[in-house]
Structures are given as C-alpha cells and as structure tokens.
Amino acid sequence: MTHTLAPEWQALTTEPDGLSESPFWHPEENRLYWVDIPGRRIGRVRVQGVQPQGAVEYWPLTQEPGCIAPVQGGGLVMALRDGIYLAREWGGPLQALAAAPYDTSKLRFNDGKCDAQGRFWAGSMYEPRDQALGVLYALQDQALQDKAHAATTANGLAWSPDGHTLYWSDTASHCVRAWNFDPATASLSHERVFQQFPIKPAGWVWGDAAAPAYGGRPDGATVDSEGAYWSAQYEGKRLVRLSPAGEVLAVVETPVQCPTMPCFGGADLKTLFITSSRQGRSAAELGLYPLSGCIFAVRVEVAGLPVNFYR
C-alpha cells in the first residue's frame, strides 16, 4: 500500500537560490552544504534538528557548480562546467583534477556524488535538451571515464546500502535506471529500468485546473538505510520513496512545486533535507510558493546513509 504523507517542513533558508541542488550533510561540521547552479555559488549552514544555527554562508564561483562532495581531510570536490576541481578549504583556491570531456557551450556537469570507495561521479546534461547526449562519468585512475549514456539531463545518482546497485535517472525521459555495480572496479552491468514515471502530458501547464494530472519527473535522489530510493519529482510537488524492487512505498508532499534533491543528515541521519528551484517558474507559482529555491528540512522515521567522502 502506498502512503501519502504531508509533513510540516521547516525552511532552513529564506534567501532563495535560483536552483539549489546537490545537498549533503557534513557529519564533522554539523553543516548542510548545497549548490546554487545559476547563482554560481555554494551554500552552507549549520543545522540543529530542523533549525538553522547562524547565518547561511555562500562561496561565489566563476562557473556553474553541478555537484559537490566532501573531501577526506577537509575541503570540497566539485564539478564545474569545464571540469572537476578540488578545494582544500572553504573559499580556497581550486586545483583542476580533470577537464570536461565535452563541448562546454552545449553541455555542463549536473548531478553527482562520491561512491563508498571515494571515487567522484558526475553526470552531464545537454542544455538544448533535444538529444540524449548526457553521460555518467567517474573520476577513476586520474581520468574521467564513461560509465553510462543516453540521458538528456543526468540526475538521481545513488547506490544501494550494500554498494552493489547503482541508480541513475534521466529527468527528460522520466526514467530511473539501475545497474549491478562492482565496487572494486566501478564497472556497471545488467542495465534495467528501475522505475518509469508517466511522461508529462502534452500541453500541461502549472495552475491549469483543466490540465491532466501530472506527478512530476525524477530529479535528484538518495537512498535510505532500508535500501529505499527517494526521488525528488520536479514539478510534482512531492518525493517518491521506492522499494529496492521499484515499488512505490510512500509519496511525501513538499512545500514547493519543484523539489530538486533530497539527502539525509543530523546526528542520527533522520533529518530529511530537500533543495528546490524557482528558475523559470511562473509569477503565479512563485506567489503561491514564495520560498521556491530555498532549502527545507523535516524529521523522518527511517535513517539515511552517511555521505561518502572523496579520497
């Protein structure tokens, strides 16, 4: 049976980002980190429970950050438009690790994170959005290696708790795929469709009461300690919790129309955070959801998994 939940979300930020993404909880700092892609900045804030502690800090960048991950020993690894970079401290100089292997006038890095072995992964998105030219890359042996293809907008990267299943979504096709994953070699096999969400109805417009129902499309994702896959449904005003077999276990309503990515944090990993978007949304939608683009938190019953550090 599918459960629909409408929890009381707490806003952690009140200054909206254009498109916040790639959140992670840093257990050593009690901070939540994220990126604002069009704002070309990285944000962070200390959190206690579901309440911010102190001011939000922003680190301005010269390029769009698609995703970030913490580094063992301190710092961040980040995927910018033209490549992967390492910063040893907040606001510090960037060390280039790998150049982007694509045409940066049409593609950029989007969703990504580290695997349990400390390798950094990032998918690309094709900005004209009329071809599935996005690729999933892993930074392996000091080079970016192709791991999966055929996505227009790479999203939803996550691993099962045992590390033997990799999930990856293409937002444009509304599809989440899964592969068998070999942690030792980072190789993928046995590709299959994990969940195919209904395609957006032709002519669907937000706020049109006569428009067909639409549940959104899969954006960023995370996996909890029970192995369930949490998918943010962009334009769907919800998260969907899927079992390891792809069954819909729960639908969690969100306080904005366009949630972009969930993650778990807090000392017990039972605080669920979501990022969101306001970029390109209508004035009517933003009037109803003025905090679109902000970060939100809520307490949940099932713990998540700790973030993986880059090594």
Score class of each variant (00 low, 15 high):
residue 49 G to H: 13
residue 79 A to C: 06
residue 79 A to P: 13
residue 115 D to C: 10
residue 180 N to S: 05
residue 282 S to I: 15
residue 22 S to L: 02
residue 138 A to S: 11
residue 280 G to S: 03
residue 286 L to S: 06
residue 123 G to L: 00
residue 274 I to N: 00
residue 62 T to R: 11
residue 134 G to D: 00
residue 226 E to Y: 07
residue 160 S to K: 03
residue 44 R to H: 15
residue 82 D to Q: 14
residue 307 V to R: 03
residue 21 E to C: 06
residue 3 H to D: 08
residue 260 T to I: 06
residue 133 L to W: 12
residue 258 C to S: 08
residue 148 A to H: 02
residue 152 T to L: 02
residue 266 G to Q: 13
residue 120 F to S: 00
residue 252 V to P: 04
residue 96 A to S: 14
residue 44 R to S: 11
residue 38 P to F: 05
residue 37 I to E: 00
residue 292 S to C: 04
residue 149 H to C: 14
residue 25 W to A: 02
residue 37 I to H: 02
residue 183 P to H: 11
residue 212 P to H: 05
residue 25 W to D: 03
residue 185 T to K: 00
residue 234 Y to K: 07
residue 183 P to M: 05
residue 110 N to R: 03
residue 221 A to M: 06
residue 248 V to N: 12
residue 130 D to L: 02
residue 263 C to W: 15
residue 191 E to L: 00
residue 309 F to M: 13
residue 282 S to T: 10
residue 40 R to P: 11
residue 56 V to M: 11
residue 305 L to I: 10
residue 231 S to E: 04
residue 170 D to V: 06
residue 78 M to D: 15
residue 136 L to Q: 01
residue 140 Q to C: 06
residue 16 P to T: 11
residue 198 P to C: 00
residue 164 H to Y: 12
residue 306 P to R: 08
residue 11 A to P: 14
residue 206 W to M: 09
residue 195 Q to Y: 13
residue 254 T to N: 00
